[in-house]
Lab assay of single mutants.
Amino acid sequence: TLATPAVRRLAMENNIKLSEVVGSGKDGRILKEDILNYLEKQTG
């Protein structure tokens, strides 16, 4: 899974598996926005 260290840390802090997040960046890269959108969906 393609993600920057900052995105990986954000995911780890929120107990998110990067494999569950759909990346919207180039080549499927997971962006910070993708993590935040995933969190919004989870908290509903």
Score class of each variant (00 low, 15 high):
T1F: 13
T1E: 06
T1M: 15
L2K: 14
L2A: 05
L2P: 07
L2D: 07
L2G: 01
L2E: 10
A3F: 04
A3K: 04
A3T: 12
A3S: 08
A3D: 06
A3L: 04
A3E: 07
T4C: 09
T4K: 05
T4R: 03
T4I: 02
P5W: 09
P5H: 15
P5E: 15
A6P: 08
A6V: 08
A6M: 09
A6T: 11
A6L: 07
V7Y: 00
V7L: 05
V7S: 06
V7N: 01
R8K: 15
R8L: 08
R8I: 14
R8D: 02
R8H: 10
R8N: 07
R9T: 06
R9E: 14
L10G: 02
L10F: 13
L10A: 04
L10E: 04
A11D: 00
N14G: 06
N14L: 05
N14A: 06
N15I: 01
N15P: 00
N15Q: 09
I16S: 02
I16P: 00
I16C: 07
K17T: 10
K17R: 12
K17M: 11
K17E: 09
L18A: 03
L18E: 04
L18R: 02
L18N: 02
L18C: 04
L18D: 03
S19E: 14
S19R: 10
S19M: 06
S19D: 12
S19A: 13
S19F: 05
E20H: 11
E20F: 04
E20W: 08
E20A: 10
E20D: 15
V21M: 11
V21W: 00
V21S: 02
V21R: 01
V21G: 02
V21F: 04
V21Y: 01
V22L: 11
V22D: 09
V22S: 12
V22P: 14
V22A: 13
V22F: 05
V22Q: 13
G23C: 02
G23M: 01
S24V: 00
S24W: 00
S24L: 01
S24A: 03
S24R: 05
S24D: 02
G25H: 01
G25K: 03
G25R: 02
K26A: 12
K26I: 08
K26D: 12
K26H: 08
K26G: 08
K26W: 03
D27R: 08
D27C: 05
G28L: 00
G28H: 06
R29L: 08
R29V: 09
R29T: 14
R29N: 06
I30E: 03
I30P: 03
I30T: 02
L31C: 07
L31S: 08
K32F: 07
K32E: 15
K32D: 07
K32V: 10
E33C: 12
E33V: 11
E33T: 10
E33F: 04
D34M: 00
D34A: 00
D34V: 00
D34S: 00
D34R: 00
D34E: 01
D34K: 00
I35E: 06
I35R: 05
I35T: 05
I35N: 03
I35S: 05
L36D: 14
L36S: 11
L36K: 10
L36Q: 13
N37C: 06
N37M: 14
N37T: 14
N37Y: 04
N37V: 10
N37L: 12
N37K: 12
N37A: 15
Y38W: 08
Y38C: 15
Y38F: 11
L39I: 15
L39P: 07
L39C: 12
L39K: 15
L39Y: 07
E40F: 07
E40W: 08
E40G: 13
K41S: 12
K41M: 11
K41I: 09
K41F: 07
K41N: 12
Q42K: 14
Q42N: 15
Q42Y: 15
Q42L: 08
Q42H: 14
Q42S: 14
Q42F: 04
Q42C: 12
T43I: 05
T43C: 08
T43E: 15
T43R: 15
G44V: 11
G44R: 14
G44P: 03
G44L: 02
